[in-house]
Amino acid sequence: MKRIGRLGRPVARFSVLVALVAGTTVAAASAQAATGVGTRADDGAEIVGESWSADGRQVVVQVRSPAMGETLPVKLILPRGWSFAAARTWPVMMMLQGGGGDTYDTWSRKTDIDTLATAWQVITVFPEAGPHGLYTDYYNKGAFGKPAWETFHTQEVLQLVERAYRANTTRAVAGLSSGGYGAAAYATRNPGMFRYMASYSGLVAIRMPLVRWFVYFSSGDADPSARFGVPFRDERNWEQHDPLYLAANLRGTGVFLSSGYTGLPSPADTVGWTPIQAVEPASAANTSALVLKLRALGIPVTTDFYPLGEHDWVSWQRELHRSWPVMMQAIGATPDAN
């Protein structure tokens, strides 16, 4: 019995040691798993960095993108109860910025979307879109290739958010100004990818007179034909990026379209008139054309056309709140119970 006892104590101590080592290994593995860094998309796009907010509800992800040939930021707002180890997944709300000086975080700086998003069980995604990319893979004289904004957003970003941050494939997309075009373009070019699409003051019929030339010369590129091609000569590519032309592809997708008729200030506006306000009536004409075509096709559409309101954030904040609950319902996102 004594011999057994002498042998038993080392065995017991060894068992405790094994348990401790195993526990440490599991804890280390768990800690290592609590990051999206290293996650890859099908084309090799990779999450190479994360910057978390103190409360763990927001993260700015750095994505090394083959489609773009550079590393770009993507901001996520995560729902209450989210964790890397969660058993469930969440629907996605993708928000697209405008042009000019907008960046991936302009929605957060100019509206109350951070508060709005955290009140719902949804993962809200704000990808960088650059100043002039206009949400397309560049035509580049028929060679396509970089910059490939559509591939970055609809393939790389969405795959990475699903694989690293517990997102699912039930999605909505919304955007303002050039981002309004982006929302309409992505929804029409990728039927079924989004359950709902909202465009606020977007140019959603890019081949309309004058609008075509505004789009062409506003690219900011040394070669303005690089983005969509030469107008009329490369008409097929223009058609395939024109939401009006592709309107039938919105069948089965919820649609919210809004714009101001005049670009003149409402009592709530504080920005003085600038030439950019001329975009607003152009957007209204574009948006009206798309509304008429959708209705002719028997595709339901919700609209909000307003007589006063600048091409500015005061209007877009209001339209965001008008469309948000409908978008959440479309993707099955529920209000936060807490």
Rank of each mutant, 00 (worst) to 15 (best):
I276C: 02
T270A: 08
A86Q: 11
P243F: 00
A29C: 13
A284V: 02
V326C: 02
R207L: 07
V21C: 14
V230K: 13
I123P: 02
Q159S: 06
G133L: 12
I47K: 10
Q240T: 10
E50P: 04
L160Y: 00
I4W: 12
G332S: 14
L7I: 14
F152E: 04
A184V: 00
K146C: 10
V11C: 07
S199G: 10
R80G: 10
H132D: 10
A187E: 09
G298Y: 01
T103D: 15
R88A: 15
S51T: 09
E239D: 06
M1K: 06
M93P: 08
K110E: 15
S219R: 07
A282I: 02
D221S: 14
R212A: 08
G100A: 13
A285P: 06
G23S: 07
F256P: 02
A164M: 01
T39Y: 12
F126Y: 11
A12Y: 09
L297Y: 03
P275M: 06
L244N: 05
A54L: 15
V122H: 09
E46I: 08
D223S: 10
G8C: 13
R251H: 04
T103P: 11
F305I: 04
R251K: 14
Y139Q: 04
L244F: 14
T71D: 07
L250W: 03
D137N: 10
Y216S: 05
A22K: 06
E319D: 15
R64W: 12
G182A: 01
F305D: 03
A67M: 03
G192W: 12
R3K: 13
V161F: 00
P325D: 05
T89Y: 05
Q277K: 05
R109L: 14
Y181H: 11
G69Q: 09
W120I: 06
G5E: 15
L246V: 00
Q277L: 09
R163C: 05
V16T: 09
N338L: 08
L72S: 14
T274S: 06
N140D: 04
A19T: 10
G23H: 10
A330F: 12
Q62A: 13
A117L: 05
G298S: 06
L294R: 10
P231K: 07
R163E: 03
P73S: 10
T106P: 11
G175N: 03
Q32L: 13
G254K: 00
N190E: 02
I331Q: 07
V122S: 08
L116M: 04
P335I: 02
P131C: 00
D221F: 14
W120P: 00
S199W: 02
P281T: 07
L244T: 08
A28W: 13
G56H: 15
L257E: 00
L203Y: 08
L320W: 05
D223W: 14
Y306M: 08
Q329E: 09
P91H: 15
M68D: 09
G69E: 01
W313A: 12
I4E: 12
A185C: 05
W324T: 01
R109N: 15
